[in-house]
Amino acid sequence: MTKLLKNLLKSPSFIIGMGLFLLTIGGALLLPFFYHVNLGLQASSYASPNGKFLLGCDHLGRDMVSMLIEGLRSSLYVGLLTGVIATTLGTALGIYGGFKGGWMDDFVNLVTNLFLVIPSFVVLILISSSLSKGRSLTLIGLIIGLTTWTWSARAVRAQAASLKSRDHIALARINGANTFRVLTLHILPYLASYVFMIFILQVASGILSEAAISMIGLGPLDTVSLGTILNDAKNQGGFGDGMWWAFMPATVIITVLVFALYIINTSMEGVFNPRLRK
């Protein structure tokens, strides 16, 4: 395990990806201590960047830097929430289905196949639009997590099924280990790095999904997110008249964040998958 970690730290793309990711997390956590975040109406609509408002203001005259800090925090929150939900649920069901087979396996297969036909984004839109009141950030995170776990389950299931016939599982069974012990001690550790990679991808897709549904106006009503900033810019004419500050910084942050997560994932794949290592 330490060897894998050392190999990871030798990979430049992992360093870059992790560096960027830590930078954004650090920004989200620490900037509020150094910068006075104020989401109140402070200036005229779409005020240009100046000494006081470094990135100008939005259509309501709110400070864009404050909006971005708050939006970044929301996006990371949604990403991590969906990542945790989708990975935990997907791993648990995938590992059990892959090892045990039976109705649980059939169920996971049925649902994953269903989601292959119906894109989960459509389901997301339908659920979000039906909740016209009380659509909070946490609720959106929950919905995204609950509609995307099938992808993790499918991926984990395949891996667990390939481990199932290994001799160490048979040995664990004749040692008297029950199913729970077999799953947690003899299968899960072998999939740990894989599950972590899935988690990274789920976080990235959570961030993107939230931004996407917020942008089409189905975002959280209780807070600012990077997606709602873009939605405001779109709806309130921020895309025109050279008002780049209305949408450009938010776009850049989302891109950097997702890009960082994707290169973390690919660099990990290079280290964990010996077939690709050559």
């Binding site: 001799d167 664990a172 072998y190």
Partner: peptide, 23 residues
């Protein structure tokens, strides 16, 4: 099966894949 394995045990073919590498 538990009481069966108390009396009947096995060694397998591939000694490398027989043990869990994490313990």
């Amino acid at each position: 099966t538990r009481s069966h394995w108390n009396e009947v045990q096995s060694v397998f073919q591939d000694p490398f894949s027989c043990f869990n590498q994490f313990f």
